[in-house]
Simulated scan of single mutants.
Amino acid sequence: MERATQRTAQRGTYDIGEQRPPCFLGSLSAEAREELLSIGFPRQYPPGAKILVEGTPGDCLMLLETGYVKITRKRANGHEALIAIRAGGDLVGEMAVIDGVPRSATVTAGEDIDAHVIQRRAVQKFLNKYPETVLHITRLSNRRLHNANSWRMVFGEFPVRVRLARVLAELAENHGEIIGSHTLICVDLTQAELAALIGSRERAVQGALAGLRDAGVVRIRNREMAVLKPDRLRAMGLLPPIGR
């Protein structure tokens, strides 16, 4: 449990337009956090595993300990669109458990995942014992909704190049590993997924990525992406410099 708590300081939930958000686990009191980690049972998932599936009953929630997951939702045409990324210390599947409704999105492991699976009855007992946790969950949901609404406004205000630079800068900051003079983005995203994140067509993302690469701002090797000039990337995304 101590090891899981330490991990929360390193990685947390990620929504477009949100920088360094507090993870759910880190927002709890030490007593509540310890009990939450003691109930349920541990599960491991390999990359690509469907952890929760859109439309299925909300019979459990999951507390992510390590790794990251992709949150996708089906479009009207049947294709899945990437809408968010969650990582160590965060909850997934909580609203379906609390509201008793089918799951609104699919959760897929982006890498090897360690998680705590907590059944609905155990969740209800925990919330009855620690009612303040309901407030933390409500705040989490409100923050996610606020970020989603804010990003919808960005869709109409900024061109693809700006939106892409902004997302890559935030991915590097929230899910990046500094290696020498550059930052490796530790989230494996396809160009189609990047396009879904910024509300654009894949071809437009390809062109914007090529421009960033030619400018020496990012380096792309297969599906591995590194940020070479973070301050330049943030400026292109109309974001303030790091540390401000």
Results as ranks from 00 to 15, higher is better:
164 L>M: 08
47 P>L: 11
154 V>R: 07
205 V>H: 03
53 V>P: 07
3 R>M: 10
181 S>D: 01
137 I>T: 08
180 G>Y: 01
31 E>W: 03
20 R>N: 13
237 G>Y: 15
19 Q>F: 09
202 E>W: 05
196 A>T: 04
119 Q>V: 00
63 L>Y: 08
152 R>C: 10
156 G>W: 07
124 Q>L: 08
20 R>H: 00
102 P>N: 15
85 I>F: 15
235 A>C: 05
169 A>N: 11
200 S>E: 15
183 T>D: 02
42 P>R: 13
107 V>N: 12
159 P>A: 02
47 P>H: 07
88 G>Q: 07
58 G>R: 08
10 Q>V: 14
217 V>H: 01
161 R>A: 12
216 G>M: 06
99 D>N: 10
90 D>A: 04
8 T>H: 05
228 L>C: 10
109 A>P: 15
148 A>W: 04
195 A>P: 02
30 A>V: 14
229 K>L: 00
111 E>L: 06
21 P>K: 00
152 R>H: 12
149 N>S: 14
163 R>T: 08
83 I>V: 06
132 E>F: 14
48 G>S: 06
199 G>H: 07
164 L>R: 02
87 A>W: 14
71 I>K: 08
91 L>I: 15
209 L>N: 02
82 L>V: 03
121 R>W: 07
136 H>P: 08
75 R>H: 04
181 S>Y: 01
222 N>Q: 09
170 E>F: 08
83 I>R: 05
25 L>G: 14
96 A>D: 08
105 A>N: 13
208 A>F: 08
219 R>D: 00
234 R>N: 07
101 V>Q: 04
86 R>H: 04
54 E>Y: 12
88 G>S: 07
241 P>S: 04
10 Q>D: 06
39 I>A: 05
79 H>A: 12
89 G>H: 09
99 D>P: 02
201 R>E: 12
45 Y>P: 12
120 R>A: 02
13 T>Y: 14
66 T>K: 04
104 S>W: 14
138 T>C: 04
61 L>M: 14
38 S>I: 13
28 L>S: 10
24 F>D: 02
112 D>I: 07
45 Y>M: 12
